[in-house]
């Protein structure tokens, strides 16, 4: 197990390395105005050239890459250009990351707590009203674009319950709506997959045998069906974590939460290359961590999976 985790980590570091290199080379193609900031219009062509040379952007690509990695290993992601001029990106991110973590993990937690039991209940009451209600909810969330229902929730729920529309750190009541909206989609996907795997499992022969033996329905559900249905569920954890990145971009800028998602929107609108680059790195690392966690969770839940040898594509 430990050996497997170690190997998997090493593999991810290689992937991360490749991704960072790709991201880096792509970012060299970014519009150069993004490095000049507000002063760009006043500068002459020669001044711009000197400025860019000083930033090291006229060096050969490999030298730039080397410098980039050297800086990265020291935890230096460059300085913000337009967002907060000359403040190190790392400092800006450090302020923001706690908000994003709180809302991201909070949403995943809520959706696990609600989605999984909902899926189990739906499988048990297959074809009855709860199942239909749940299916309706899932179709709604999958089909209606997130942008629309996030807005509708913000617009009407705040109206009906007289809640403040924007996030306020010191009023916990304002945390509620962003958290719930972010949890809506992952809840639906957990419920959908849980239901499907439970139903698949219920139709198998060993369940019929257990029934024939006279195993109690409760024991059957919880120690046979649930245990087996949980195994494929484990791999949806990373997908949810990835999802909260997108969710956070919408939600954070809607409720003006000072997190990383909102920052990305701001940075893009102000053409701040270094912040975009830093955020892309953080988000892709998060994605990779999510995938590793999913694989480990899967190995933990299912004793039959020996991921060490003969690995397959998920």
């Amino acid at each position: 197990m430990l050996w497997y985790v170690g190997k998997r980590l090493l593999q991810s570091i290689v992937t991360l390395f490749i991704i960072i290199t790709i991201v880096f080379s792509l970012l060299r193609l970014m519009p150069e105005e993004g490095y000049l900031g507000a002063a760009a219009e006043k500068m002459s062509a020669a001044q711009k050239e000197v400025y860019l040379t000083n930033l090291g952007l006229r060096d050969p690509l490999l030298v730039q890459l080397g410098n980039f990695y050297a800086d990265l290993l020291q935890g230096d992601l460059g300085k913000s250009v337009t967002y907060r001029t000359d403040v190190p990106v790392v400092t800006i991110l450090a302020d923001k990351i706690m908000y994003s973590l709180f809302f991201g993990l909070g949403a995943v937690g809520i959706s696990l707590l609600i989605g999984v039991p909902l899926g189990i209940l739906m499988a048990q009451m297959k074809g009855r009203w709860l199942d239909r209600l749940g299916t309706g909810y899932i179709v709604f969330v999958v089909a209606v674009p997130a942008a629309v229902y996030y807005l509708v929730i913000q617009m009407y729920i705040t109206d009906i319950f007289h809640l403040p529309m924007l996030f306020d750190e010191y009023k916990p009541i304002t945390w509620l709506l962003p958290l719930t909206s972010m949890a809506l989609a992952p809840t639906a996907s957990y419920a959908m997959w849980m239901r499907r795997y439970m139903v698949d499992e219920l139709n198998k022969d060993y369940i019929k045998l257990a029934r024939a033996k006279g195993v109690k329905e409760r024991t059957l559900m919880f120690s046979h069906v649930l245990r087996n249905a949980f195994i494929p569920m484990a791999q949806y954890l990373p997908a949810t974590i990835l999802f909260t990145i997108t969710g956070s971009i919408y939600i954070e800028s809607l409720y003006s939460i000072p997190g990383m998602g909102g920052l990305l929107v701001d940075a893009i609108q102000r053409q701040d290359n270094t912040i975009v680059q830093g955020l892309v790195l953080v988000f892709s690392s998060l994605g990779i961590i999510g995938l590793i966690l999913g694989d480990i969770a899967m190995a933990l839940v299912d004793p039959r999976i020996k991921l060490g040898k003969g690995e397959s594509v998920r």
Partner: peptide, 9 residues
């Protein structure tokens, strides 16, 4: 490699 990069990014 491709699958590890979040689509949104």
């Amino acid at each position: 490699v491709v699958d590890n990069i979040p689509t949104t990014i």
